[in-house]
């Protein structure tokens, strides 16, 4: 495996970045590896951008991913995914991004327009190796809950070829942290999403 393997989770406060970091860290421990998870959540309660840096390896790595060194970017929100990618993505980065937008207050106020998703996808492609834009809204509607976005995205992560975490351990970590059948179903859906 690549050591460290670096996963960056980008989203908005309240979307569950912190839980996502906890699940992946737990899966890494189950795998016999050492995770380091760095959260930025100072202003997360107030609708701000939130990033979680996850490093997985045989030793402890720094809590911030160096620029360009992201292996997988999990984007829970399109603009936040692009913001994180511009800062941290590189030629190795596989971006998995939920298309569901959470418009910031300057958009809901009518002052700005939320960028077109196709423009964001193009922007991501210009800084990442590959980009998967996922139609999460439909999937989550089918499942009857937006709360399972975390498990769906982790499912998608599990299908990336060089991810050092077994599906078995990711599923077990989801069960340990969330204790929900719905989440395991969302994980399975995510695993087939790419």
């Amino acid at each position: 495996m690549r050591d460290p393997y670096s996963i960056l989770v980008a989203g908005v406060g309240g979307q569950g970045n912190l839980v996502c970091g906890r699940i992946i860290a737990e899966a890494a421990v189950l795998q016999g590896l050492r995770p380091v998870v760095g959260d930025t959540f100072g202003a997360s309660r107030r609708g701000g951008s939130v990033m979680t840096h996850i490093r997985i390896g045989k030793q402890d790595w720094g809590p911030l991913i160096p620029k360009g060194e992201v292996d997988v970017l999990l984007g829970f929100e399109p603009v936040e995914a692009l913001r994180a990618a511009v800062k941290y993505a590189g030629e190795r980065t596989v971006a998995i991004v939920s298309k569901m937008a959470i418009p910031p207050s300057n958009v809901t106020s009518g002052d700005l327009r939320y960028p077109a998703i196709s423009d964001i996808a193009q922007g991501l492609e210009s800084v990442c190796r590959s980009v998967h834009m996922l139609d999460t809204e439909q999937v989550l509607e089918d499942m009857g809950s937006t709360r399972v976005l975390n498990s769906f995205m982790i499912g998608a992560l599990s299908s990336i070829e060089d991810v050092p975490l077994d599906s078995k351990n990711l599923r077990k970590a989801i069960s340990n942290v969330l204790e929900s059948e719905k989440d395991l179903a969302a994980f399975q859906k995510g695993a087939k999403a790419l």
Partner: peptide
């Protein structure tokens, strides 16, 4: 790893 240059700043509301 090298970082690719981006030209998307106008999208970053």
């Amino acid at each position: 790893t090298t970082k690719k240059e981006s030209h998307v700043s106008d999208l970053l509301i």
